[in-house]
Structure formats: structure tokens, C-alpha cells
């Protein structure tokens, strides 16, 4: 916790990173940021590619899945434009993906649904195994990678995954879907400092003001309040000045 805060304080300002990113090719920008630690990458704008955890094949499948779960158009941003795959890629390499704060000691055995997750896999391993299983399933059932299936077929596949009716080789499909859909929504709505919710568009969609502080003046409102949201990236730069 304290180390995490220290890391945040030591960061170069977002403005510097953005200027740097604009001046370099995407790959070079990521390399430069990588030299500063994984955390800095979260502050970079989403760029297609440049994944650190996902393989190319995994990234293609993940992008296709999140594009169906939260498609572009309509009332708010799609998952791709919000940077959801980037968030997931970074999170799986960081504490969350490595099982930080989760109990992973054995022995391992199946329990009741009420006892919860009992697999020996850290989240990054769960993703790796599940994405390989899903690729195998798509190939076996449809003869093509998930990303190349028609949208309606992709939706059907996601529904099978959610209901647990998709037979995967190593994992209960519903278990992965539950984790994945939770992580996708987390990516979509978290402060942009973590790599998703780009331009706070998901916050604007619902009217959440983010790290805004004093909401007392609005308490008596009977209609929807409108406040320009504030991200931690903006606020922390101000605090550090």
C-alpha cells in the first residue's frame, strides 16, 4: 500500500508522458514507459497493440469479446475505445493478475458454489488457460478463431460461456466468464489513471463525477446534476505541483 503510493508520487507528470508518447512511435513510447515501471504505462493513451501480457492471438480474441460485451455506438463508449483491453493487459501483469491479496495455498479441491473460487490458478494463469480453451472451442465448433466469427455467432458463444454450456477443456466456462465480465466492467469504469475509461467517457455516460470533492451544494436537486468529472491523473498532478 505504502509502496504503491510512493510509486505514484515518483511518477513523471501525465503531461510529460503524453508529450513523450506523441513524439514517439507507439512501440517506442511503450518501451520508454516500460523503463519507468509498469505503472506508468497506465497513464498512456490507449494505442492498438503494444500488449505486454496478451499474445497477439489472445489480444485479438479479447478485443473481439469486449467489443461484443460493450459495443461502440449508442449512449456511451465501447470497450475498445474506452481502453478496456489495455487495462486488462496491465492488470494481469500487476498485483491483481499475480494473485495479490488472494489465498492460493493448497490443498485444492472442489467445493460448493457458496465456498467460491477454489482453483490453484492466479488470475493471469486463469486468463491464459481460458483463452486457449476458448480458441480451441471456436476452432472445433466453428472452424475459425473467435475473432473471425460473425457478430451474432460471437454473441451466441458468449451466452454459452455465461451459462456454462460451453464445454471448455480445462475450466468451467461460466467461472471464466464471471471473472472476465467483472474485470471488463471494472476496466470500463475505473479512474482513467489505470488505463481504461479513456477520457472519462464511461463516467460521463452515467454522470459520475469521479474524484470531484464537495457535492453538498447539489443535495437538494430533484433533477440530474451535471458536473464535469475529475480524474486522479488531473488531481494528483495538481497536488504535486
Amino acid at each position: 500500500m505504502r509502496d504503491h503510493l510512493t510509486t505514484l508520487e515518483a511518477r513523471p507528470s501525465r503531461r510529460d508522458l503524453l508529450a513523450g508518447a506523441a513524439a514517439l512511435s507507439a512501440t517506442a513510447a511503450y518501451s520508454a514507459a516500460l523503463a519507468q515501471g509498469v505503472g506508468d504505462l497506465a497513464a498512456l493513451p490507449h494505442t492498438a497493440g503494444g500488449y505486454l501480457f496478451f499474445t497477439d492471438a489472445e489480444a485479438t480474441a479479447v478485443e473481439a469479446m469486449v467489443d461484443r460485451l460493450i459495443p461502440a455506438g449508442g449512449v456511451g463508449p465501447g470497450a475498445i475505445e474506452a481502453g478496456v483491453p489495455t487495462f486488462l493487459d496491465r492488470a494481469l501483469r500487476a498485483g491483481y493478475g499475480l494473485g495479490e491479496g488472494q489465498y492460493l495455498e493448497g490443498p485444492f479441491q472442489a467445493g460448493t458454489p457458496e465456498q467460491g473460487y477454489q482453483l490453484p490458478l492466479e488470475p493471469h494463469q486463469l486468463y491464459r488457460v481460458a483463452l486457449a480453451d476458448i480458441a480451441d472451442w471456436a476452432q472445433a465448433v466453428h472452424g475459425a478463431p473467435f475473432a473471425e466469427l460473425p457478430p451474432a455467432t460471437q454473441d451466441d458463444a458468449l451466452r454459452l460461456m455465461q451459462s456454462g454450456d460451453m464445454a471448455l477443456a480445462n475450466l468451467p466456462a461460466a467461472l471464466f466468464f464471471g471473472t472476465f465480465w467483472f474485470d471488463v466492467r471494472t476496466a470500463y469504469f475505473s479512474d482513467p489513471i489505470h488505463g481504461g475509461n479513456r477520457d472519462m467517457a464511461a463516467w460521463r455516460m452515467v454522470g459520475f463525477p469521479g474524484a470531484y470533492t464537495d457535492l453538498r451544494p447539489y443535495l437538494s436537486a430533484d433533477t440530474a446534476i451535471e458536473i464535469e468529472p475529475v480524474s486522479l491523473a488531473q488531481v494528483l498532478n495538481l497536488e504535486e505541483r
Binding site: 505514484l8 475505473s190 479512474d191 469521479g210 470533492t213 494528483l236
Partner: peptide, 16 residues
């Protein structure tokens, strides 16, 4: 500090 407004770190990941 407004770091305390970081829903991912505190509300979801249980930072405290």
C-alpha cells in the same frame, strides 16, 4: 489526498 477517491484500488481491490 484524493488518492482516496480511487475506486479500483480501495473499493474493488481492497487496498486497506
Amino acid at each position: 489526498t484524493r488518492r482516496m477517491h480511487d475506486g479500483l484500488t480501495y473499493s474493488v481491490r481492497g487496498g486497506l
